[in-house]
Simulated scan of single mutants.
Amino acid sequence: MMNVVSSEFYKIFKSRIFYAISIILLAMNGISFAASVSLKVKGKMSGTGFSNYQGSYGADFIFYIIPIFIACLITAEYSNGSIRQMACHGIARWKLVLGQYIAMSFVITIILLGFGILNLLSCTILSELGEVDTAAFIRMNIGVICMFWGIAGIGTFLSYLLKNEGIAIIVSILLVTGSNFVANLLALLTRNDVFTRYSLTNMRKTIIDFTSKPEDVMKYSIVFFLIGIITILGSSLLFSKRDVD
């Protein structure tokens, strides 16, 4: 398994999508810092380092970047034929899927946490760090990491299911953009708010909110974690039963 994971790390660091995502996030950090400097000069800056860190994960772009990153890496192996070589080396297919998922999830987690930390540092330099309950901050970060890995699982499943980069990306984006509409529609039809409470957007908002109830944060973190497990089991089953072409 360690050989599979290390091989996947090597391929990720050689991929163009790794550098593209990194550059995009660094550019976003730069734009955010420039905007903060402008507000500081005008005397209108009101945020703190912690609030800026919190806001780093408050937009849907997180739900877009992760599936795009995953889809580009997995479907590239279908398009260049390397996936067949991997499957013919005698390694259990579920190990290939799990090793790939671990490597991709770890890398995207480091990239996105780095994005948030840079925003925290830039705002702290210009304003102040702020105050937040330590336990709430720890819970938030655990939840955010579970969210990353859950969304990565969804991206992995769609990539193995569709095996096409463009289609996998489009479906992933449609899933994110349409999830709120579907959740609200189901809640309206059933008169039960369980669908809106467990929508991707609401779970993310609860996790990154320092004032959320601890039990809600942990509950939604577990849901994201379970999404990751279920989707990886599904991906392993797909890769084991279907032809690699």
Score class of each variant (00 low, 15 high):
M28P: 03
I230Q: 06
M104I: 04
S172W: 05
V223A: 08
I142L: 13
E165P: 00
I68L: 15
G99Y: 07
I208W: 01
G55V: 08
S159H: 04
I12Y: 00
N80C: 04
F115T: 06
S6L: 12
I222N: 08
L120Q: 05
T156G: 04
E77I: 14
V97P: 02
S56M: 06
L118M: 13
F61R: 09
N192F: 08
S122L: 14
C72F: 14
D133M: 08
L175F: 15
L175H: 02
I102E: 09
P67H: 02
L118A: 13
L121T: 07
L185P: 07
G153P: 04
V41A: 15
L200F: 15
F224H: 13
G228F: 05
F157G: 06
I169Y: 03
I207L: 10
N141R: 08
I232F: 01
G116T: 11
R84K: 15
I230Y: 03
G130D: 02
P67A: 12
M140L: 15
A183P: 03
R197D: 12
T201D: 15
R242Y: 03
S82D: 02
D245M: 04
D133Q: 13
Y53Q: 00
L118G: 01
S82F: 07
I21C: 14
T75M: 05
I62S: 03
I125R: 01
